[in-house]
């Protein structure tokens, strides 16, 4: 049988062909789970871990391990509840939060400026690049003598500890972020007419932002470490969270010590959660992870 080689009479327009191809190439994505389901999936392992810790703790009390120090989870819990209902506790929280906010702000500003400068200026990089990495590995408590010598027993000494302990992490986030900006994007930005500050603002900093955010997150962790170390070592009025913990310890009020430790850990987890959430959102917007993968 002869094959009919006549052209198909139907002429497809470019419009239709492109629209069809677009639809085919944007293959349907799997539907996302309901938010409540996602929340459940993300949180149940955390609660399970918490339950395990409580069980082990309770068993340790039952077998009289460290019997003069260790309180039951229930006792610590009730101590925590009474803490949460005292205004003095909230004053302490506020003092610590102020210190944390001010210190972290300085960490971001100084780390950001230093990081951007080091990433852009070659001489500066060879001068202080490895120093910054080195400083990042130093425990923040090592900065206490310096803070004490310069500012004495004041909150400024704690701020100094936070900045020296955490700014290197933020700076490194900026440096690696700016280093890793794809050259193609920079070239595209230049062609589109972005130069100087406009290139930084519209291309380089946004392109570096996922790594910068990573640096900010790590910087927060270091700043929090430094703040707690500082508060344990430098007593302030009104008493900060760390200062109160030291105070309770000196009175042998172990239940309060543990309750305050729980608070400090909870704050750390909460802030980390905010950073992780921001990081996930950013990555899915940039197309660095599938939106449904988180």
């Amino acid at each position: 049988m002869a094959i009919d080689t006549r052209p198909t009479p139907v002429i497809t327009t470019l419009d239709d062909a492109l629209a069809g191809l677009d639809a085919l190439e944007r293959a349907s994505r799997p539907p996302r789970d309901r938010p409540s389901r996602r929340l459940l999936r993300a949180t149940w392992p955390k609660f399970a871990t918490l339950a395990c810790i409580l069980v082990v703790w309770q068993i340790a009390v039952w077998v009289h391990w460290q019997r003069h120090i260790l309180q039951t989870p229930a006792h610590v819990g009730s101590q925590l509840v009474s803490l949460l209902s005292s205004s003095l506790f909230w004053q302490s929280c506020w003092a610590t939060a102020q210190q944390a906010g001010l210190g972290y702000l300085l960490v971001i500003v100084i780390g950001g400026l230093v990081g951007t400068a080091v990433a852009r200026i070659r001489v500066l990089r060879s001068a202080v690049g490895s120093l910054i990495t080195g400083m990042q590995t130093m425990p923040s408590v090592l900065w206490y003598p310096l803070g004490y010598m310069v500012f004495g027993q004041t909150s400024k000494a704690i701020i100094l500890m936070m900045v020296l302990g955490a700014a290197p992490a933020v700076a490194n986030g900026f440096i690696s972020g700016i280093d890793q900006v794809p050259p193609g994007l920079v070239r595209a930005g230049r062609i589109l007419g972005a130069r100087g500050i406009a290139l930084d603002r519209h291309v380089i900093l946004p392109a570096a932002f996922p790594s910068i955010l990573g640096g900010l997150k790590q910087g927060w962790a270091f700043a929090w470490h430094a703040l707690m170390a500082g508060e344990f070592l430098i007593t302030l009025t009104p008493l900060s969270l760390g200062g109160r913990t030291v105070n309770a310890l000196s009175y042998g009020d172990y239940a309060t010590v543990v309750a305050l430790m729980v608070v400090i850990v909870a704050v750390g987890i909460a802030v980390d959660g905010v950073f992780s959430w921001a990081d996930r959102n950013l990555r899915s917007r940039y197309g660095l992870i599938e939106a449904s993968a988180s």
Partner: peptide
């Protein structure tokens, strides 16, 4: 505007901007 535009094998779109904002950028600049 700049009289020279350039396209590469990679589209080099800015991933943090929407499609519309990508197209707007040269005009914004």
């Amino acid at each position: 505007g700049s009289t020279t535009a350039m396209l590469f094998q990679d589209a080099n779109l800015f991933p943090w901007l929407t499609i519309a904002a990508n197209v707007e950028l040269p005009m914004r600049l």
